[in-house]
Amino acid sequence: MLSFILRRLGQSSVLVLIMSVLVFAGMYVVSDPVAVLAGDDFTEEDRQALARELGVDKPLITQYLVFLSNIAKGDFGVSFVYNRPVLDLILERLPATLEVAVLAISMGLILGIPMGIYSGLNREKKATKSISFLTTVGYSIPNFWQALLLILLCSVWLKILPASGRGDTTDLFGIPVSFLNWDGFSHMLLPAVNLAIYKICMQTRLSRSGTQEVMYQDYMTFARAKGISKMRRIRRHLLRNILLPIVTITGLELGGLIAFSTVTETVFSWPGIGKLLLDSIHHADRPVVVAYLIGITLMFVTINFVVDVLYALLDPRIRYK
């Protein structure tokens, strides 16, 4: 196990390095910070001066090496646009994204798994057919359109939930969070539901198909023959066996929500990191984008690692050399 961890650590460092090169090159290809930042009343000389100050007048390789040496010193750089340290920018926006992502994933699991197991066990019932139809409709509607429909329904017509922004926050260990007071929580609901709908549908389908397959495995028949009660069969045999794909997907989905809830955060003006990423890409704010994506890469590497370990625990046939 230890050598496995060490090996993964080594791979991850290489991965992060490759990521930083890709993003550096990517942002260079996409945009020029001077072109975005310079006002219309900048003369050619003003533009050159701005490029010098941002450090983007040098060749790309030099810029990258400067960036690496700064990282080594623990300096992740300063945003071109906001002129503030990028870590500050990212960290102050992270809690907002985290709480919505966790809420959405929880909704997905809490509603999705029971519905999925129910559908898998009761294939011919009316409720199953309705669930199946609803999940299909659920993930057929583009996320951004769904968001607009939610705003139209809940904020404009029914006027029960606010359409945008974060609302009041409560400090929890010095971190502002929304879910601890009603105003904040009500602001969280629409974005979370918007993110959750797709997750609910997906979890339902995954656990349904898992259930269907597991139900006809010999050990289930055997367990039934042995007279083990239904609830116990579901808990001990079924759940354990369908958890494998669910764990993989949930891990990755949570990562995805944290990293790229860009559309939802944009439509609901939710001040999270997804919106920061989109804005930064559009404003040619390379330091933010690079630092952000390095952080995201680290996160995914960790999630994948945890998922792999869980695999080993859940499925004893997989062992690591």
């Binding site: 993003v23 942002m27 996409v30 945009s31 994506l293 590497v301 994948n304």
Partner: peptide, 22 residues
């Protein structure tokens, strides 16, 4: 598998923008 990790961390919008710009 590490390429999978890499892809998962790379935002589609940036990828699309790169293709668009290039």
């Amino acid at each position: 598998m590490r390429s999978v990790d890499l892809k998962m961390s790379f935002p589609g919008i940036l990828l699309a923008l790169m293709l668009l710009a290039m």
